[in-house]
Amino acid sequence: MSVARTIIAAMLLVAAPALLAGEIPQDARHSGYSFMGPDTRAMQDDDTSNPGMLFVLDGEALWKTRSGSAGRACADCHGDARESMKGVAARYPAFDKALGRPVTLDQRINLCRANHQQATPLSHESRDLLALSAFVAHQSRGVAITAGDDPQLKPFVEQGRALFVQRQGQLNLACTNCHDDNYDKHLAGAPVTQGQPTGYPLYRLEWQTLGSLERRLRSCMSGVRAQAFDYGAPELVALELYLMARARGMPMESPAVRP
């Protein structure tokens, strides 16, 4: 019996990266979706009632629109996003060789604009950037998350994990205190989730618009009365990367709907 168990454990180690201490095991990982009520779920389930799909529609139009002094559209290089972008968002943040660090999907879009379209960068949380990232991420719906598998990302995943477990802010709370140790409990009646990043960019009813994972993380930091990292800060990218790596194997839901 114990021999068999050892073999299974050994096989798991080969098949997937070992869990870090305190991390939620694969079979216990739950998307924020499972913490929502039936009405909010219904809003996400049907594409014709999911307000995030309005952004996907806009993103599809932008994908084909020429931009910048190079006069090129995303589609001119990448072709049909349904083929070329399938699974891409599930691998982000990804390591950029030229920069020697991970970049988010939003940063990749802006790198593409700078390097291939000679276009100005789109600002954080702008409608166009959210629309493009929603359109790209939508092509990965149902695809299992593999971000962080690239060995070059290891130190950055570790940096993100260190930030995840570090207490911060006037309330002196770490992400892990709520989202690893206390999910399924309630903060003033609202369920505490595992903080799984499976649906970004997502339509948050609180925001009444689509928003990025960075926006959500900054909002959490404000919640514990910490000074939020700036958009695009390496720490925020590392946190995003760690969260995606922590959600390894979970299917993408973009654009999700959350309360």
Partner: peptide, 11 residues
């Protein structure tokens, strides 16, 4: 109406 537990603040 459940009030949101965490709201965004200006820092």
């Amino acid at each position: 109406v459940t009030l949101a537990a965490c709201t965004e603040e200006v820092n």
